[in-house]
């Protein structure tokens, strides 16, 4: 997924080859990760796609099925991966992930601790942020989940940047070998306050911790615990509002007739094909108009950040 070795720099210009991971894009809300394998086929509602047709084509290409249906083959990125990974737990999404990485001040070369690993959605982005020289140590107490995460990181080519450990961080804390060597810590645990003293030991002075919790009661306890050794304690909530864009014709108000807004027959807005010809004939000017989507995620979790107090 990442161009970890300089030799694979600009991986996008690389053509798809046997064994590559590609993101199969049907629609913006329908994607999946597929491992290319010479003899295999992909079957979906658009027909049968032969992997052998894909090999040698650049990423970003449209490929066709036996029935003439098509899909796009995209190069995997952490953002796309978050949309296609298999959910073994509740996962973090784009807005929280982006904010966490910025606020934890993670830059290439950083050492980051995470618990729990969960489905590895955040871990993938953490790895991108510390690459090429840093490292992410992630812990989950669930052995099978840790193993699945390890397999995923193998699949996405990130295993050199991520080490998955099986450990109950709430119960045992982080391993002592990391004491005072860590730049940032991320906690997504049911009782994060139990892990905070240990996290404090792991961090370098002025290092940043983040705890993600869905409930405000958890946040309350986290903040109380943090006050002992941390400073600059701040809690946020971040959401994304998406917009629908469609072409519409606004009828002018001539004389005394009333104003009305007439949306053009709403085709699938993302797959509008070449019906452009008759759009020209209609009267009035068509313009692109945007409005917020009617449904949105109302809550994911609270993000609490804090900085280890600096005594030295």
């Amino acid at each position: 997924m990442l161009a970890i070795e300089p030799a694979k720099k600009l991986s996008f210009t690389r053509c798809i080859s046997d064994g590559d991971l590609v993101i199969v894009y049907e629609r913006h809300d329908n994607m999946r990760a597929v491992k290319v394998s010479e003899g295999s086929v992909l079957q979906n509602r658009f027909g049968v796609f032969k992997h052998s047709d894909w090999i040698g084509k650049p990423f970003g290409t449209k490929v066709f099925s036996n029935k003439g249906g098509f899909i796009y083959l995209l190069a995997p990125t952490p953002e796309l991966w978050t949309l296609v990974l298999s959910h073994r737990t509740q996962i973090l999404y784009l807005s929280d992930i982006s904010f966490v990485i910025m606020y934890l001040e993670i830059v290439p070369g950083c050492v980051v601790l995470e618990s729990g690993t969960g489905s590895g959605s955040l871990t993938t982005s953490l790895a991108r942020a510390v690459a090429p020289k840093g490292h992410v140590y992630t812990f989950d107490f669930h052995e099978q989940r840790a193993a699945s995460a390890r397999e995923d990181f193998e699949k996405t080519g990130l295993s050199s940047l991520i080490t998955v450990g099986v450990r109950d961080i709430q119960g045992e804390g982080f391993p002592n070998e990391f004491a005072s060597t860590v730049d940032s810590v991320f906690l997504d645990l049911p009782q994060p306050w139990l892990a905070i003293p240990s996290a404090g030991k792991m961090l370098k002075d002025d290092g940043v911790l983040c705890s993600f919790s869905p409930c405000i009661e958890q946040v309350q306890r986290v903040c109380e615990t943090l006050r002992e050794n941390f400073t600059d304690i701040r809690t946020f909530e971040i959401l994304l509002r998406a917009y629908d864009v469609r072409e519409a014709k606004l009828e002018g108000c001539q004389d005394d007739s009333s104003v009305s807004v007439v949306a053009l027959p709403s085709k699938k807005r993302r797959q509008r094909s070449s019906e452009g010809s008759n759009a020209q004939e209609t009267q009035g000017s068509s313009i692109a108009m945007a409005r917020p989507c009617a449904e949105a995620k109302g809550h994911t979790g609270y993000l609490t950040f804090a900085r280890l107090k600096c005594f030295s």
Binding site: R234, R241, V245, A290, P292, Y302
Partner: peptide, 21 residues
């Protein structure tokens, strides 16, 4: 291009204090 999306982030900070959150 594909996967086109317009989004607007919304960020809210909280005061977290005992009985005053």
């Amino acid at each position: 291009a594909i996967g086109l999306q317009i989004s607007e982030p919304w960020l809210r900070e909280y005061q977290v204090l005992p009985s005053r959150t």
